[in-house]
């Protein structure tokens, strides 16, 4: 294990008005709060802080250059990763389907249903479904099921004069249609919660309107 020798540490402290480089680095980590006049008023400390900040800035450039280089790679590393997870579908519960055959045991996975509902949402401009839950016992035929959707809405998907409510009504209709075509579930309700709202056109640039 390594430690500063007492002598070099003492030299450093006497040079930096009783502080070490480590103290100063911690001070920067804290965002210089609470402010410490024994550091701020020391010319030697100020010089050392400037050096540390220069180092931080230079290393940020090093890091972002390295990240950029990796992002430019075209050797298919992303595809390799995606291929390796594609077969690992999220099954969830087993949703039975009817059949005339006495030996048949047919089913949809809950994951398949959630996936196709997500796709239905993506088919509507301005809608992105983030979460989808099937509430109720889907493993029991005929049980009433409530579909709960958390969605992100972008106003660019709205037709002129259309409200968020109109847009979610379109989503609800699309979701019902998919559920009828793709499942044998008994749907009690489709509950949609808008958790996120995106504005399309930039906010008016006139002064004082940019309240985030």
């Amino acid at each position: 294990m390594w430690r500063s020798t007492p002598r070099s540490l003492a030299e450093e402290q006497s040079r930096l008005s009783g502080h070490t480089i480590e103290d100063l680095n911690d001070y920067l980590d804290r965002g210089r709060t609470p402010s410490d006049s024994s550091i701020d008023d020391s010319p030697a400390c100020t010089v050392a802080l400037t050096r540390l900040e220069r180092l931080r800035a230079a290393l940020r450039r090093v890091d972002s250059a390295a990240v950029d280089r990796e992002a430019e790679r075209t050797d298919g590393w992303v595809a390799t990763i995606i291929d390796s997870i594609r077969l690992e579908t999220r099954a969830g519960r087993r949703i039975p389907l009817t059949s005339d055959s006495p030996v048949a045991r047919l089913a949809l996975t809950e994951g398949a249903v959630i996936g196709v509902l997500r796709t239905a949402g993506d088919g509507i401009d301005g809608i992105l479904i983030s979460r989808c839950r099937l509430e109720g016992d889907v493993t029991e035929p005929g049980e009433p099921i409530t579909v709960r959707l958390d969605v992100s809405v972008g106003t660019d998907g709205m037709n002129t004069g259309e409200s968020v409510r109109d847009l979610t009504a379109r989503l609800r209709a699309a979701v019902y249609a998919v559920l009828v075509q793709q499942t044998e579930l008994t749907i009690a309700a489709v509950d949609i919660t808008v958790t996120d709202l995106y504005l399309t056109t930039a906010l008016p640039t006139s002064e004082g309107e940019a309240d985030e």
């Binding site: 579908t89 047919l106 996975t109 398949a112 996936g115 793709q182």
Partner: peptide, 11 residues
């Protein structure tokens, strides 16, 4: 005695 078919993905 059994034929089990499961749909794991749609679309």
């Amino acid at each position: 005695v059994e034929i089990a078919v499961t749909v794991a993905r749609i679309g």
